[in-house]
Amino acid sequence: MYKYLSGVFLLFVSLHVVAQQPTSPKIKILLLGSVHFTPSTQDVYQNKQINLTDRQAQAQLEQMVAQLSQFSPNQICVEVPTQRQSNIDSAYQQYLKGQYKLGTDEIDQIAYPLAKRLHLPIVTCVNYRGSFDLDAVTKYAKENNQTAQLAALDRFAGSTAAGVVAAQQEKSITDLFRFINSKDELTKNAAIYTAYATRIGQGSAYPGTDLVANWYSTNLHIYTNILRAIRPTDKSIMVLFGYGHITILKHLFESNPEFDVVDVADVLRQ
């Protein structure tokens, strides 16, 4: 009986000690989906180039950077392959010295000015370029009587892209970012893959599903690159990426108990 009671007491003490252990605070992460200011030639469905030459656009950008600075990220992760970190380091250092003329992409127009404002030493490259062969999907659909499914995908993706183009023309830059990071728009973008691309294929052939699997794999590698970049002292991270990546990245970080995913609308307030 004494041994039994002793065992129970020790178990109680152990559980009490574990319960008293302080838990590490979660890392806040802001996943900021972006349109490409200079549209990528690799994207099938593109937004229009954003005109950054006038004073109004620059004022809007400055206002958005000011709002993002309130989030105070310890790191800014950008859509540049990890292998190009030295190139980004060099450009950013030149920018800090006033020896670099900003280009028209979102990294130059958002990441660099924000990093400078926050006195960050670097801008972190975390991109991973995986396989994405849409031509194989198109070829299969045309050769296997699935042109109707291909046409449905094209209509939906085209309509989604057109909605973003319309928002570009009607909204301020901050409101555009709020729009493309809304739940509805992120779901539409993800549905191009989950609701349409996966329908292309029959029997033992899964060309559409394989395309989606490769897209998930690409984003999983990006997620891993972000995890690898995090330092023990980091309390908050901002990820600036094409908004098509955000739904998957958001799911991955929301499923990781070490992170607290911050809503873009809570940072970019109206």
Score class of each variant (00 low, 15 high):
N74F: 00
N189I: 11
L32T: 01
P39E: 12
I230L: 10
Q63R: 11
I222F: 06
Y223L: 07
Y2C: 00
Y2H: 00
Y4G: 00
L68E: 06
Q21K: 13
K188A: 13
Y4M: 02
Q67N: 06
L227R: 13
L176N: 11
G130I: 01
V262D: 02
T138G: 06
R269S: 05
Y128K: 09
V80Q: 06
P73K: 01
P39F: 05
Y92F: 14
Y243H: 15
Y196H: 15
D234I: 05
F177G: 03
I230N: 08
S6F: 09
T82E: 13
L268W: 12
S86A: 15
F259N: 03
T233K: 09
A190H: 07
E170H: 07
Y4T: 09
Q99N: 14
N74M: 05
P207Q: 08
H119W: 01
P257T: 08
A229N: 12
V165S: 10
K101M: 07
L176G: 13
T174K: 14
I200F: 03
R231D: 12
S90W: 14
I200K: 07
E258T: 04
L134A: 12
M238D: 08
Q99I: 00
K250W: 05
L249T: 03
A229Y: 10
D175L: 04
R178F: 07
D184P: 00
S24E: 06
L120F: 06
V44Y: 03
L61K: 02
A197H: 05
Y206P: 08
M238G: 05
D43E: 14
V123W: 05
K188C: 04
Y100C: 05
N225K: 11
R269M: 01
H251E: 13
A195P: 01
N214R: 11
N144S: 08
I246Q: 08
T174D: 07
K142C: 00
N47M: 06
R84C: 02
L186A: 10
A162P: 00
P39D: 07
G201I: 03
V261E: 09
Q58K: 13
D133W: 05
Y206Q: 13
G33H: 11
V239E: 07
T218Q: 15
Q75R: 03
I248M: 10
T198C: 08
K101R: 13
D266E: 14
A66E: 12
P39A: 04
L176H: 09
V17L: 15
T233E: 15
Q67L: 13
P121Q: 14
D260P: 04
I200S: 07
Q146W: 10
S6R: 13
N214W: 04
Q67A: 11
P25T: 00
A148K: 15
L249V: 06
Q93R: 12
P73V: 04
A148S: 10
G244W: 01
L61D: 04
I237W: 03
L61P: 07
Y196C: 03
I88N: 06
